[in-house]
Lab assay of single mutants.
Amino acid sequence: MQNSHSGVNQLGGVFVNGRPLPDSTRQKIVELAHSGARPCDISRILQVSNGCVSKILGRYYETGSIRPRAIGGSKPRVATPEVVSKIAQYKRECPSIFAWEIRDRLLSEGVCTNDNIPSVSSINRVLRNLASEKQQMGADGMYDKLRMLNGQTGSWGTRPGWYPGTSVPGQPTQDGCQQQEGGGENTNSISSNGEDSDEAQMRLQLKRKLQRNRTSFTQEQIEALEKEFERTHYPDVFARERLAAKIDLPEARIQVWFSNRRAKWRREEKLRNQRRQASNTPSHIPISSSFSTSVYQPIPQPTTPVSSFTSGSMLGRTDTALTNTYSALPPMPSFTMANNLPMQPPVPSQTSSYSCMLPTSPSVNGRSYDTYTPPHMQTHMNSQPMGTSGTTSTGLISPGVSVPVQVPGSEPDMSQYWPRLQ
């Protein structure tokens, strides 16, 4: 039975679970980093996980050691009161100082060594604690504590007292930064006198190289990059290397530039699409467009005044059976039934097929058609009795279509119309 579990990581490298990497692998990681390889490249070359490479390099940059820390136990506290007071002093002298600059000053002034120097995250935590204590304490208590930490007896009751030896409130920041720059020169002199001055200088240079600022491109470089971006948004590694040799930039910087440029292009394309949609959409909808001609068919113009009344309900007709019959029939052209047409008796099958359309009241044959006459024609229609054979009435077949029909004066039988409509 094995005491430890061995495995293979996602890159194909072998590791022992819970145990640190061998010293030979750690040394190779540092050597590759000094030669300029990126952590992701080191991870692929040595088949070590990216997190492990970053952790080893980060500890090497901070402490200069590649040895693993002790497994188990607690780390001794490195942010001692003396170190905290120095950090507060540096922050007062130059409020814009960075944590890694404070760390360098602690090393250069001999406050800490490589073994007990606090990390950048520890210094940031100390600065946050100082800021929170400043908010919790009152103004007087804060000034007393700062005077105690600074070891001075001057008056701290006013704002300019934060910067000793100065009279203009805006000047101390520059003086403090100048003092810090002077301390940086002392850093070089002190570290050069040490035993491991060369190694420390190499480590600091490598650290500065990794902690780079934003790349500033010249106009020629920007023009070359934009020209390549117009050709393709995704250049391959050969195109990037050719462009890197042409404009004297690292291939990694060119790759990052193209990634950022593609993101910018997507944002601009989104804005262009929004403007295009806004320009195509009308600002207001016309009133006429809300009524579609496919839904509402136009009603033909009436030929006679009587045809303006298109349904039985508008003429005072309360018989719903006839109203439904007229509205359900398709529109037909106007025609006239003459008196000489043969009077065919209704076929029983045809009569039964339209039995649902006729009223059940037996008085329908005896009703006159003056009910369908509009009010303004009552006088004219009353002067001509319906009993004469020459009287013409208008029957409504569908809305908007008038059918003048000659009705025999002897017997106005409704059943004569249905064979004609089939």
Rank of each mutant, 00 (worst) to 15 (best):
R77I: 05
G110P: 07
C40W: 03
E62A: 06
V83A: 15
L146Y: 07
I71T: 07
T80Y: 06
I71K: 06
R67D: 07
Q10L: 12
Y90C: 10
R77D: 00
L127N: 08
P22S: 07
Y60T: 00
M142F: 07
I87E: 03
P95N: 14
D23I: 06
S65V: 07
P39R: 15
S74N: 00
K28Q: 09
L21H: 05
R147V: 09
M148T: 07
N17M: 00
I42D: 02
L127E: 08
R38C: 01
R19M: 05
V84L: 05
N116L: 12
R103T: 03
T113W: 09
V111R: 14
Y90V: 08
E82D: 14
P20K: 02
A37H: 00
A70Y: 08
G36N: 14
S108R: 10
I29D: 01
C40L: 05
G7N: 08
Q89Y: 13
A33E: 04
R19D: 00
N124H: 03
D23Q: 07
N150R: 12
G18T: 03
H34G: 15
D144P: 09
K75R: 09
V78G: 02
V83C: 14
I87Q: 03
V16Y: 06
R147W: 09
V14C: 09
F15E: 00
E62T: 15
P22W: 01
I87L: 15
L127T: 12
P95E: 12
P118E: 01
E109H: 14
A99V: 03
R128M: 03
I102M: 08
V78Q: 03
I123S: 01
A139M: 11
N124R: 14
G64F: 02
I56M: 04
P68N: 02
I29G: 00
N3Q: 12
A79Y: 03
G12N: 05
C52M: 01
Q10T: 09
F15P: 01
A70L: 13
G12K: 04
V126K: 15
D115I: 11
K75M: 06
F98G: 03
Q27A: 10
V126F: 06
A139E: 13
K86A: 06
L32W: 11
L32Y: 15
R38Q: 05
L146Q: 08
Q47K: 03
G73L: 01
T80D: 01
N50Q: 15
R26W: 02
N50S: 07
C94T: 09
G138R: 08
Q27Y: 10
K134P: 07
S35T: 14
L11F: 12
K145I: 06
N50M: 15
R26P: 01
P95R: 06
N3D: 14
Y143H: 11
S24N: 14
N3T: 10
A99W: 03
T80K: 11
G51V: 02
S54D: 01
I45W: 12
I42C: 03
K86C: 07
S65Q: 14
K86S: 11
I87D: 03
L107R: 07
S54L: 15
G36R: 15
V14Q: 11
L146N: 06
N9Q: 02
R103H: 12
V30S: 05
R128S: 08
P76E: 02
G7L: 12
V120N: 09
Q2K: 05
D144N: 13
K91G: 00
I102E: 01
V83G: 03
M137S: 09
L130N: 11
V53T: 04
S65R: 09
V84W: 05
E109A: 10
S132H: 09
E133D: 09
L106K: 03
V30F: 04
N9G: 02
R147D: 12
A88V: 15
S4Y: 11
S132K: 06
E101G: 15
P76H: 02
R77W: 09
H5M: 13
Q27C: 07
